[in-house]
């Protein structure tokens, strides 16, 4: 009797197991087509030989990576030196994306905190208001940003009419304009995860801290921030990663001087002047960079989780 029941139980488990695999199949297919396949394609392309009018010749070559990292002179016959051009572009991109992330954090954190501490009934309205601008296409938003910021634009007009400045501040085509554009593009990705974390936070812990003689600042630093850290990290990743590969904001607001990785890659696939293997190689370098950053975060997170038990 008991044995029969046991075998019946394991049969049910098996049924569930096969059903689970079947139910998961669509997700695997979608992940395969939309995530795995493009990455593998890029990886293969980066090791092929370029065709001069765009496209590739199916012949193995390390030329793309060589071009990215090494300078062998105009005719390729000099001893290899480190090629700084692309590394500098990567460095600048990282720096720009980092600045945009910090800007988003500075504005996004208080915003999220504000929304999460409103009455429950009005919180969805605030979240809705935050997301409204993002119903408009990113290109349109970035172009309008350009109009707002240019020397004869409304921002400078307003500042001059108040008498704060005598001549227009030159914002467009600077690093700051790019950071501003990236910040504006990805702000909700900072606000929403932090909002979710603060909303889950149990405010009686803040009361307990105050009760135990902690000032507001100490409470924020020692109690609130550690509790909502996962939300802050998620927000930073969600802003930093797309900022790093972005090309609209740098193109439209940064001008030719403020070239970023996204623009570099975009150019390799545009029209006849492109170099597909080189674009693919640059993409792979970018992808590796992002993966390394994410792995560092994940490792720290799991370390913290382990410490928390």
């Amino acid at each position: 009797m008991a044995a029969g029941a046991a075998s019946g139980g394991s049969a049910t488990t098996d049924t569930y197991a096969s059903a689970r695999n079947l139910l998961l199949l669509p997700s695997w297919v979608i992940l395969g087509i939309f995530v795995l396949a493009p990455v593998i394609m890029m990886l293969i392309y980066s090791f092929l030989t370029k065709e001069f009018r765009g496209g590739v010749i199916w012949q193995f070559s390390l030329a793309a990576y060589d071009q990215f990292f090494f300078d062998r002179g105009l005719f390729g016959d000099e001893p290899a030196k480190i090629e700084w051009t692309y590394i500098n572009i990567f460095w600048r991109s990282t720096w720009q994306a980092g600045a945009a992330t910090i800007l988003s954090l500075l504005i996004g954190f208080p915003t999220a905190y504000f929304i999460a501490t409103r009455e429950e009934s009005v919180r969805p309205i605030w979240v809705f208001l935050i997301t409204i601008p993002y119903w408009v296409n990113l290109l349109i938003r970035t172009v309008s940003m350009k109009f707002l910021l240019r020397d004869e634009g409304p921002l400078n007009d307003f500042l001059m009419s108040t008498g704060l400045i005598d001549s227009p501040i030159h914002i467009i085509n600077t690093n700051f304009a790019v950071q501003l554009g990236l910040f504006y593009s990805y702000l909700p990705f900072m606000v929403l995860p932090i909002y979710a974390a603060v909303e889950r936070y149990n405010f009686s812990m803040s009361e307990a801290a105050a009760d135990l003689y902690a000032s507001k600042w100490v409470t924020l630093r020692r109690i609130v921030l550690p509790a909502i850290k996962p939300g802050v990290i998620a927000g930073c990743i969600l802003v930093f990663v797309p900022s790093l590969g972005s090309f609209l904001a740098p193109d439209l607001l940064g001008g030719a001087k403020n070239f970023m990785i996204g623009s570099l890659i975009e150019e390799q696939f545009k029209g006849n002047a492109g170099n597909w293997p080189f674009g693919a190689a640059a993409s792979m370098v970018l992808l590796s960079m992002v993966l390394i950053i994410l792995m560092i975060f994940a490792r720290q997170q799991s370390k913290a989780d382990k410490a928390e038990g």
């Binding site: 149990n202 105050a210 009760d211 135990l212 003689y213 902690a214 550690p226 509790a227 928390e308």
Partner: peptide, 20 residues
């Protein structure tokens, strides 16, 4: 006085221990 300046302490209903 704000709570952190009052020499009284509280045991909360849900304990409000700091989880981290």
């Amino acid at each position: 006085l704000p709570p952190h300046q009052r020499p009284v302490n509280t045991v909360f209903q849900n304990y409000a221990l700091f989880p981290h």
